[in-house]
Design a protein around this nucleic acid. Sequence first.
DNA 1: GACGTAGGTCCTATGGAGGCC
DNA 2: TGGCCTCCATAGGACCTACGT
Lengths: 365, 365
Amino acid sequence: MKDRERAAPKRVTMADVAERAGVSPTAVSLIMNRREGTRVSEDAARRIRAAADELGYRPNLTARALSTQKSHVLGFISDLVTTDRLASGLIRGASQEAKKHGHVLLIAETDGQSGAAEEAFSALTDRQVDGIIYAATRPQSLSIPVRATGGTPVVMLNAVSDDVAGAVIADEYAGAAAIVQLLLDAGHTSNVVILGRSLDQPDDEWLTFAVRRRLNGIWDTLHSAGVVPVAQIPCQPWSVNNGHRGVRDLLDNGIRPGALICLNDRLAFGAYRALTEAGIRPGGDVAVISFDDDDIAVYLDPPLTTAAIPFEAMGAQAVQLLLQRDRVHGQQLVDMPIRVRNSVTIPAQLDLRLTHANDDERSAR
Amino acid sequence: MKDRERAAPKRVTMADVAERAGVSPTAVSLIMNRREGTRVSEDAARRIRAAADELGYRPNLTARALSTQKSHVLGFISDLVTTDRLASGLIRGASQEAKKHGHVLLIAETDGQSGAAEEAFSALTDRQVDGIIYAATRPQSLSIPVRATGGTPVVMLNAVSDDVAGAVIADEYAGAAAIVQLLLDAGHTSNVVILGRSLDQPDDEWLTFAVRRRLNGIWDTLHSAGVVPVAQIPCQPWSVNNGHRGVRDLLDNGIRPGALICLNDRLAFGAYRALTEAGIRPGGDVAVISFDDDDIAVYLDPPLTTAAIPFEAMGAQAVQLLLQRDRVHGQQLVDMPIRVRNSVTIPAQLDLRLTHANDDERSAR
DNA sequence: GACGTAGGTCCTATGGAGGCC
DNA sequence: TGGCCTCCATAGGACCTACGT
């Protein structure tokens, strides 16, 4: 009788239902879960269902988890608290897929500090999550604190790791190949410029496996078509200002691009600015393609044709991987959809075969 | 002995520690939790701590939750799956604050469908969350399915509700007043134009309580200074294209703004474009202020001075509210920081007293 | 003052008691 | 008397705590 501050009406429990239906708690449990092996009389079952209904009974999943060792909760850890919001799609995709399977997401963040990852893993395993998704906002190789894992299955998302088999990442190579092919098919084969990285540039921290694949996709495709770029502009980081500077310098050097392959949308934004300042119309005078499908891609004028990172699909895929009984090993590559917009002029006949990204402007407030 | 598929090494339990230390589980429990009322000998305590350490003992929080009725888990429900990522800061702020208090976030989304909210609340209460944050990506009034709540405390985040007392929202009125005051202090008092909504416009779905407050802040401040706008441009939704059209029409009508108050950053982006096309330099020829501190605000040239929605602070505040023993009622207003950038030219003497937003371009990949 | 026992949290899995043919 | 089907009691699962020694 210590119902002083706990004004909560005390959840109705299995015992309550059992009592009202005049059966044992066991019978209630059997009815509420599996119906196979009908071990309860139809009459009792009816009474139980009725009682559960009237009392508004809902099973206590914590207790169930304790008993079954399955919590139906998945952990989601993201590597660092970034200031941009690119990767929130990962969570969203994962969350929706989890919901489909009756699971729910417990999230934790490693705020960059070392030791934080271990702490995050522990916080989740202590709560008996059935599996953990370890996600990065930028593709990279992460090490996981195996000790803190306690045997809980882990899949990497937008990242890879030597410590674990499953990983879901964007198919950068194929995506790059596809969008460059689109550019070439549209006839933009001369004066091709690559903005963001030069092959002559020494390896550095920015050359992650994902960037490498993206570059390979680009170069292989150009090469297959016998196209040789007239210029490569290295810049680090891939920011608006660097894109702007890069293209401005290019123009100052008297090189006028016919097609511009930007390694991400921010660079493209900067490029647009430099081109416009020089009186060159993006989309009209020069074809532009890019990567990521950042928010700004739609806002640009003309809207940018870009290879999107399929964050939501990747998140969903990670959940599937985790929930599959027979684990698939190795990397799962997810297609990068090409958002066909107007920064590349496309001959009518080719155009018929393309599906254009149809973004009505997203409305705000 | 059914360790067939469950290859997991079986977590070490309190009983294991007790056995190794030669004490009862109770003693272990006492040591692992509260130390007050030293009811265990220092010697035993030492042995217990040693044993726990050697075995790598970690308490099973599921079991603890079952017995204490406190899960140290907070639920986070967001209202609808929006395509933009503005509000991910809410989760981030909440998550970080929760972590500080030894809590963790369980997330659920109501995918817009009716009934989904109830389902989400149930999914969380079934798992014994200690409290629920009900967040909206756009400020609005939401009704909560009280039945499914089961007495679990709820606070609204970036939203309000008639069904619940606590709510955390941005202080739109004060934010608007502050940024308009900044504009006026900088001397931009003539040819003021408001872009986004006209007072003559009839009430509609876009006129949420948040927008109303934002508008009131603007108008009251202008009024106090005796400033009367030369034009108000209604547009719905607040998109880049509408901002562009609005300002272009304005210029076509021969009105040349001296100061432009945009109701959000997307409108501002469109305005920039229209101004630039007309040969007018934003920041130089016309001062521009705005709201939201969207990603694009930094990318613009010149970077946009805007009143930021403090998503992270709001998320943190919601957690605090939830965790406070003595609940504070009513709405918690969170300050909107003014990001002072270069779209408003500021006299040197005033400038000294301002803190400028110092955004080095965020680096990508 | 130091410690153990037993009972409570709620659900599930298993073996076994009882009834019927 | 044995076989079979109903149903239920009991024993966990890992922890906390009131009480008793």
